[in-house]
Design a protein around this nucleic acid. Structure first.
Lengths: 210, 210
DNA sequence: TAACTTAATGACCCAATAGTCATTAAGTTA
DNA sequence: TAACTTAATGACTATTGGGTCATTAAGTTA
């Protein structure tokens, strides 16, 4: 009886993403500084030495984690906005909804909390994230708001600040899940949370008060 | 010419709060794990040995930082709510405004970000914070919303989720300031941010559409 | 001003961990 | 199946930083 699976498997292609996935989980859970690389390697089913085959340093691993999975979603949002035909509010709803299903329900959901917690320790990565995710995400929401104000669907308000207020609850929902979330008995229901947020926004933004 | 100030000053009373203040600043800036106690001591104008005179461990210091300054503000909010006479919306505005001036504009402003970043590493402290700050803060906002719905000033909505959505932007404003805030050129203006948030809420919550 | 109490110090200890590298073995080629 | 390439390993090193404690000196009392 001979074992079919050798102890050491050579899987050069799969290792990097398995390592960043493991690292993301641990970084989100314990923070960057408190995460030990041996634990990351263990979770990825590999030894610490192997980790260093693919990433030069702990910081390089952090950068890879952040850059890996979140940027495609922004591009997707931009495509949605470009092809949208309905009302401005529908667009807003689709943008936030898409962001939720593509980030909030995936393994990448922990990235905003991680980025918030570590931004000051990695200004370079934070800047990258700001330029490629935040700035573009804001621009999308801003364009939707502008469209609605131009058409008379929304009342006129100062746009830049409005963007922040619209995005904040969605961000908070994620951050909460990966931080204080475990303290409370019944978890927040994301669908209901988003529904209430959109409901308040619909009436809060509208111009004509019938 | 004799120096009036000896090298070692004995200031037993002042040390603890000076140490927690220094620790808060560094914890918020770098995270708990990445903060060195020697640096905390240095910032407090004291040696590392002195720090251990007042706090048993790094974790004890963390607990003290969290527990020290934020709870009185909740009590203050409860007093405001108890004595409030005007409309429910005015109460909401006063609560958020008070929270802002008493936390947002003080040294304690970094605590929410710190708590969010470290909650999973200190479940016991997180639980304490949850019971004494979050739960009570939510109850305050919830009572204001209920009052408004009961009087017909607000339309009826599911309260628990509503609370979250009302609070989220205010929390996000603080968290942002201590994380990604330094990435963007022009900072958000807190007063304008709160004004827009309250403006959206006023119209979003109201029952009668005149 | 001498004796005494205790706040403050900083050199030291040791556990933890980021990063290295000589060795091992999986898979490939001839 | 022997020779070869390189993915994978894990023992090892160097450094960092939490925590200790014998020593020092500020302030107080008699």
């Amino acid at each position: 009886m001979v074992s079919e699976s050798p102890l050491r498997k050579r899987r050069k292609e799969a290792r990097p993403s398995e390592l960043t996935a493991a690292a993301l989980g641990l970084f989100v859970e314990k923070g960057f500084a408190a995460t030990r690389l041996e634990e990351v390697a263990l979770r990825a089913g590999v030894s610490k030495g192997t980790l260093y085959l693919y990433f030069d340093s702990k910081e390089a691993l952090f950068k890879a984690v952040i850059q890996e999975g979140i940027i495609p979603v922004v591009a997707e949002g931009e495509a949605i906005a470009a092809s949208h035909a309905g009302s401005a509010f529908d667009l807003l709803e689709r943008l936030l909804g898409n962001w939720w299903t593509r980030i909030g329900e995936t393994d990448f959901a922990g990235i905003p909390k991680l980025m918030v917690a570590e931004a000051r320790n990695f200004p370079e990565v934070a800047q990258f994230y700001y330029e490629n995710v935040i700035r573009r995400g804001r621009a999308l929401v801003g364009a939707a708001l502008e469209r609605g104000m131009a058409s008379g669907e929304f009342r006129r308000m100062e746009i830049e600040t409005c963007i922040e207020v619209v995005i904040a609850p969605v961000l908070m929902l994620l951050i909460w899940r990966f931080s204080m979330g475990s303290c409370q008995g019944k978890q927040v229901d994301p669908a209901q949370y988003l529904a209430i947020h959109m409901d308040l926004l619909r009436q809060g933004l509208q111009r004509s008060q019938v």
